[in-house]
Each structure stands twice: as C-alpha cells, then as structure tokens.
Amino acid sequence: MEKYHYKESGLDNVWLVGGFKTEHDEEYGELVYIDDVEGLHKAIAEELLMKKSPLTGAEFKFLRKYCELSQADVANIIQSNEQSVAKWEKAREKAVGNRPAEALFRTFAARVVGGDKMMIGFVTMLNEIHARLGAAMDIEVNHEDGNVWHVEMKAAA
C-alpha cells in the first residue's frame, strides 16, 4: 500500500497509510488530498499525549498549534515565559527540558483534545490576569436572586 510522508504536520515521523489520494496537476505538480484532516490531527494529538517518553520540541509545537494557542498563551498556562516555549520548540528533536511544565501542558492539552471548550476560556482568563499583574484588583461578589453567587474581578476604584 502506498504511504505518504505527512511533513505538513510539522512532525518528521508521520506517515499516512490510506486516507489520502494524489493527483498530478500540470501547473502545480503532485497534489495530495487528505481525508478528514481534523480527525487526523486529533488522532496524532491523542497519540502524542499518551506517549510515555518526553515530548520533543516538534511534538510540543504540534500540540500547541492543535490547541490553537500562541507561545505566550502556553507560557501563561505553565507559568513560564515565551522565550522558554520558543526555545523548546526550536530544539525540534530534543526533549522539552522542563518536565513539570510539560506535564502541566499535557494535562491542559488533553482537556482541549478531549473537547473541553471551557479550557479555551481558561486561557483567556489567564491572559487577562497576566495583563493585570501589578494592578490593584477588587473582588466583587453578588448574591443574585438570593440563591446564586456571582464573582467578578474589577480594577480597584
């Protein structure tokens, strides 16, 4: 059976067996059509998350992109800095050098890959908190309708 080296994933070791077709175009050369790219990426992400060895920089980057996160977003999630994330990703074949940060990111990514849409809202909240660091904040708590508590952080007056 024909195999296709799926370099477009950003990973050097992904080969497709089935699920694609090729066609020759006079103007553009060989064209490749892949069935269900979203499902393919989810399957790759799930396999990477279950991998028993440390993630490589390329694998970390694949998961970050799958989760639709920037390097700054990941840095906020793992309480690191954007330069560290960029350094890990640049060292494509080397293992991510910070095991606790990798474990935290894998946990977050697993929730996103599993379909937890709340995690994206969590990133937005972390980014807002990061932007407010150093600013005085008040926590306003309202008891709505006598049975529901609603909490909101606001800039101090």
Rank of each mutant, 00 (worst) to 15 (best):
V113A: 07
G97W: 03
V141S: 04
R106Y: 05
V148L: 12
I77D: 08
A86P: 01
F122L: 03
S70W: 03
A103V: 08
K90S: 12
L69V: 07
D116N: 07
A75L: 06
V148P: 00
G146E: 03
A86D: 07
D116Y: 02
N76L: 10
A131N: 09
Q79P: 01
E59P: 11
T56L: 02
E128G: 14
G114R: 02
E59H: 10
I44H: 12
E89K: 00
K52L: 06
E144K: 11
A91C: 04
P100D: 00
D73T: 08
W149I: 13
S70E: 04
E102A: 10
K61T: 07
K42L: 04
V148I: 09
C67W: 04
I129M: 12
F105A: 11
S80I: 07
A72M: 11
L69Q: 04
L55D: 04
M50H: 10
N98I: 09
T107G: 15
L63E: 06
V123A: 08
Y66Q: 10
A75E: 09
K51G: 14
G97C: 05
Y66H: 14
A91D: 12
L69S: 05
K61P: 07
S80W: 02
N127W: 00
N98W: 02
Q79T: 12
E89V: 04
I120S: 12
D145P: 00
M118A: 15
G39N: 13
R64C: 11
A75G: 14
F122G: 05
A110T: 11
G97E: 05
V85Y: 06
R132Q: 05
N81F: 00
K90R: 03
F60E: 03
M125P: 02
G114W: 03
V113M: 05
K90L: 08
I139G: 12
D138F: 11
E128I: 10
L63I: 06
E38G: 15
I129C: 11
S53D: 05
V148D: 06
E102W: 02
I129W: 09
M50V: 07
E47I: 12
S70L: 09
